[in-house]
Design a protein around this nucleic acid. Sequence first.
DNA 1: CGTGGTTATGATACCGGTGTCATATGGTCC
DNA 2: GGACCATATGACACCGGTATCATAACCACG
Lengths: 357, 357
Amino acid sequence: MASHEQGPERKRRARAQEGDSRRKHTINDVARMAGVSKKTVSRVINASPFVKEETRKAVLDIIRETGYTPDPQARGLAFRRSFLVGLIYDNPNPQHTVSHQLGILDALKGTGFELLVRPVDRTSPKLLDDVRVFVERQKLYGVVLPSPVSENEDLVALLKELGCRYVRIASVPMDDAACMVVSHDGKGAADAARHLADLGHTRIALISGPPTFRSSVERRRGFESGLAERGLSLDPALVKQGAYTYESGINAAGELFALENRPTAIFCLNDEMASGAYLAAREHGLRIPQDVSIVGFDDAPIAARLWPALTSVRLPLRDMGRMAGEMLVPDPLREVQADAHEVQPQLIVRESTATAG
Amino acid sequence: MASHEQGPERKRRARAQEGDSRRKHTINDVARMAGVSKKTVSRVINASPFVKEETRKAVLDIIRETGYTPDPQARGLAFRRSFLVGLIYDNPNPQHTVSHQLGILDALKGTGFELLVRPVDRTSPKLLDDVRVFVERQKLYGVVLPSPVSENEDLVALLKELGCRYVRIASVPMDDAACMVVSHDGKGAADAARHLADLGHTRIALISGPPTFRSSVERRRGFESGLAERGLSLDPALVKQGAYTYESGINAAGELFALENRPTAIFCLNDEMASGAYLAAREHGLRIPQDVSIVGFDDAPIAARLWPALTSVRLPLRDMGRMAGEMLVPDPLREVQADAHEVQPQLIVRESTATAG
DNA sequence: CGTGGTTATGATACCGGTGTCATATGGTCC
DNA sequence: GGACCATATGACACCGGTATCATAACCACG
């Protein structure tokens, strides 16, 4: 254990004697000023129904006057839990992380809850131990798990064991719907498939992600179903497995472009790989979109900056974070949140797709 | 105030009677098992010098056996502060935010401190009030302020008034050095200037950022000094002001390319604007780097994905976060951190720069 | 007017730590 | 051996909230 050298045993400075008007008010101050006991103030704070309306008003007045807010640490100590929500993530895409954070904090605003971030290594053997210590020590109110962490069933089992609330953000339903925000990546992929088919493409390639990612599986499944709707099917020779990285996109697309009968369109399961496909296309002297159409997934910042701008599937990341936060933390001021814990991906058509040559 | 409906006044479940082996240990358990008072355990935890070596060992043994860790809430309540560090940021670049977070958490690992994130709107009139409430309610141990928030002197003054530790991350020294991590953006910009000058460029343009950002001022200053070292100076006609955005980069570069005697090289004060310059170059039929060299700043993920890959100045963002965390939180296990709270930018030369045509 | 059943309130203990202060212990010096 | 001092320890109050339980206040009813 690390000890913290907080200058133990030091004398407490005199404080009460001089004008302590600047000192923060406590529940005792409010109680005294309102002429009630602290327990009654506590009842008002916690919206207990057993407080006379008149008393409640008086206490609330004092609270407003003094600007009193309860100390989350003291409250947490008594409640045996904290007012902290954890975000446990392992996503190399900074935009996902930041967007989720912004969304979660949108939901937490005004509730008194705060957000603790905890990046993890999902391949670490210590992952479960780390999460256990994190949740127990901080007595977390709940945690948000974006993918791919949300796909770790052992971790979810651990959270259940610890009695820690959680909301999973994932591409496909995997659990009690009350604990999930579902992005339906498959629908976005199907949109991409129809878009390419409608442009007249028939030799359409796919660069997939690691099969251990549910998003990859789901995007591929959706893409195939979209093609099927247009009477097309995926030619196994035109499917290359990538790793969601730039380099893997370069390699996979390079292989596709080296085929005798090369595809006229490629769907890359994320934008990083699509960027790699751009480079490979240049290396093979192929123009986008005249010679080959390319579609990505994520609508990362890079998508609009590439040239030509990349057609991609956008996920409402911030909304997803907000929904997760709303599901986790009850806010009496909020309207009953619709149980629609699902969002729809959106195909953003830019300049990287055109009619088949 | 939002009330939280935590089921007040509910009966506590019987617990102590049945096998409470699973219950977390408290300082009382440790004290009893070690045969000392809780105060002595507290002394051991806080590395008090007034504990007999023998007693200390005995207590530490029990602590190790039981896996006891003190409750941060209870400790914080008694200490009148928390073991939480805040990250107050307003940076549209998600990579900055995530890298800083990772770095700060590198430093916090093993110290028992946790990181609370707080995105803010630096233009909001409620900014100071929000920060005050945030710091006071959470009794933050300290906060990290990346730029541009770090440049808000009112906010820094507020933190001083509140007695809240802070570390500023900024491009140039602005304060007591003990409270700053300095990235010396100017040096990186000077590197860029020399690089272009050494390639034979003389008509070198600059697309600046908003003058309200210290980073913009500092990068420009460094660039000019780098040029001066090579006997060059910035032609006012070749300086355009941007806003650190893609669109502003397109416009500024477009104006430069429309000049009769257009520049052969452009230094853009961030990569977003450099991306815009890429688009403008294409619109004007100019090849990069044959017709115009372009240098960016930030080495954002996009830099390596653009075509041709963008020469840019990289800041060690994660290191900067780590240093900020180390400065904020004392860790007895850590070696005395060098008082070198400065980092050096690094010019990453890629394919967007070549000898002057 | 006493009885009984709500409704409303407060006294007190408690959550799990630390600060204060009193006291016990051990060694040195005369 | 007694005075003195530094070291080592514990009893107790306290940090700012909530849970438990007793009790007061109120009402309707016989």
